[in-house]
Design a protein around this nucleic acid. Structure first.
Length: 495
RNA sequence: GCCCCCAUAGACUAGUGGUUAGGUCACGUCCCUUUCAAGGACGUAGGACGGGUUCGAAUCCCGUUGGGGGCACCA
């Protein structure tokens, strides 16, 4: 999609420490919708600064899910054949788009901060810092780093270094004043600086921490709007402070309400599937998942439920995003998927179901799916829904046989129907319907007395598609064969 | 513990001072119908609580309660 509005640039910045989570997908979607709505750029940045948990497999998995969902990015890693491309092959000219490839930018910004006395080297060990926090907590003060290295003289620093202590860099958080900013979904926000500690911006490894890398990159990539989860709300004042120290204008911020599980807690494994990939495997359509996710934290004035992508892009607005957390409701997602399945052309569904019916004829598969389509909720439902139509080796459900077939007079009715169907010249649903009704009339029974046994004989079950259409689909030969088989199995006591 | 955010039915939401509080999922009844679905109609169910402001409050303000998020050399 062409980027026509260079002043709108948003990004989705996952950390590759696992699969793409439902919450992450929602964040990505809202960023994508915003970018497409304004014809701006949607950028994908990989935040792989967690040196122990980041993996290449996660990058691939996330990109795969993004691709599957149809959330295409204008700038970011290349992804082809299931593998993310090399950093230097990235799309876009503000790269690289992997943070570990951007260390120089962070180090440069850090040097500036150090030179301008907005940051200082810290030689404390993790244990020492832990201790400080505990002491502060015991004296009922906020558990902050106490600034032990804040006022070190050059001599003292040299001494620490001579001791072989490792050096990290901390941001010199102002100890007074407030940090205010406007959030596009929440309005004016206010934080007191003295509650914030001097946080680490560069680890001893030379790798930046999140709050620092994020600022350097959002600025470096000309990000205009930072749209992310509410879990980042309290990180924002820290970041705003860094922007100011560097003399940069912060972007606009929009914090999206969280997605919860049915019990109001954080969405986790015990609520069911949490990764996009699991939904793909469970038989959900990407468009349905996206549509459902869009409804979590955003709504139109008329509470529209189902959107085409174009419609959704047109109507999306940050001002219409909800401030309160939303519970993820699997039942509504399932309904949504059914909506999308019913709108999916039968040949497309047949293509999807192909693998389960490798030997079936395309026409036969499509016909079977057409008969059962409105019952499909998940794509994975298809095999068990159409199997008895494709294969003649279907099961006779005991309950159906006992209740409908093993009834006095049914044998005569079926024999009669065999003759009537056999003699039909135009074997279509209308002709079949007429034959059935004629049979019932001639025998002085209700239509249902013919229909139900016929259905069970021909399908082994009491529920299924319209009988007339089902018999038409099976054709004369197969229908008669099925009727005969049911009768002989019944006579032989095999069912 | 401290800071921040949030609060309409079981769930998602509409509504921004005057509405019979609307829509969707789920649930229930009915209709359609050869069954199961799908579809249609109807229904049960809602502004956490307490104070203000106002002729009038779901809507504005304060407090309480509840829920969530954050307080890392994780992001």
């Amino acid at each position: 999609m062409a980027v026509k509005n260079p002043s709108v640039r948003v990004r989705f910045a996952p950390s590759p420490t696992g699969y793409l989570h439902i919450g992450g997908a929602r964040t990505a979607l809202f960023n994508w919708l915003f970018a497409r709505h304004h014809q701006g750029a949607f950028i994908l940045r990989i935040e792989d600064t967690d040196e122990v948990r980041s993996t290449a497999e996660s990058v691939n998995g996330i990109l795969e899910s993004m691709r599957w969902l149809g959330l295409d990015w204008d700038e970011g890693p290349v992804y082809a054949d299931g593998v993310a491309g090399l950093p230097e092959q990235s799309l876009g000219n503000k790269g690289p788009y992997y943070q570990m490839q951007r260390l120089k930018f962070y180090q440069d910004a850090c040097s500036r901060l150090l030179a301008q006395d907005h940051a200082y080297p810290c030689y404390c060990t993790p244990d020492e810092v832990d201790k400080m926090r505990k002491i502060a907590e015991l004296s009922k003060r906020p558990p902050k780093y106490d600034g032990a290295c804040r006022g070190l003289t050059d001599d003292q620093r040299k001494k620490k270094e001579a001791e072989g202590r490792k050096k990290s860099v901390r941001f010199k958080t102002p100890q007074e004043g407030d940090t205010d900013f406007t959030d596009l979904v929440r309005g004016a926000l206010h934080f007191e600086n003295n509650l914030l500690e001097d946080f680490v911006i560069l680890k001893t490894s030379g790798v930046p921490t999140y709050n620092f890398a994020c600022v350097v990159d959002d600025h470096g990539m000309d990000i205009s709007h930072v749209i992310r989860g509410e879990d980042h709300l309290s990180n924002t004042p820290r970041q705003v402070l860094v922007y100011r120290a560097l003399g940069w204008e912060p972007p606009q911020f929009a914090h999206l309400a969280m997605i919860h599980g049915s019990d109001g807690g954080r969405l986790s494994k015990r609520h069911g599937a949490t990764s996009v990939r699991e939904y793909k495997e469970a038989g959900y359509l990407p468009a349905a998942l996206l549509n459902y996710l869009a409804l979590l934290g955003w709504g139109t004035e008329d509470s529209q439920q189902v959107f085409t992508p174009k419609d959704m892009i047109e109507k999306f607005a940050l001002e219409r995003c909800t401030k309160s957390a939303a519970a993820f409701d699997p039942a509504k997602l399932l309904w949504m998927n059914g909506e999308y399945v019913r709108k999916t052309p039968v040949p497309d569904l047949a293509k999807i179901a192909r693998t389960a019916f490798a030997s079936a004829d395309s026409k036969a598969l499509e016909g079977a799916i057409a008969l059962e389509r409105e019952k499909i909720k998940l794509l994975t439902d298809i095999p068990k829904l159409v199997d008895f139509l494709i294969s003649d080796e279907y099961e006779y459900r005991q309950e159906a046989v006992d209740k409908v077939l093993r009834v006095a007079g049914v044998g005569d009715i079926l024999s009669d129907m065999e003759k009537r169907l056999d003699s039909l010249t135009s074997f279509d649903s209308a002709g079949i319907e007429a034959a059935i009704k004629a049979c019932a009339k001639d025998r002085g029974v209700k239509n249902a007395a013919v229909i139900h046994p016929l259905r069970v004989a021909v399908s082994g079950r009491t529920e299924g598609p319209s009988l007339y259409h089902m018999i038409e689909y099976l054709g004369k030969a197969r229908s008669l064969q099925r009727m005969k088989k049911a009768q002989s199995l019944l006579a032989a006591g095999k069912i």
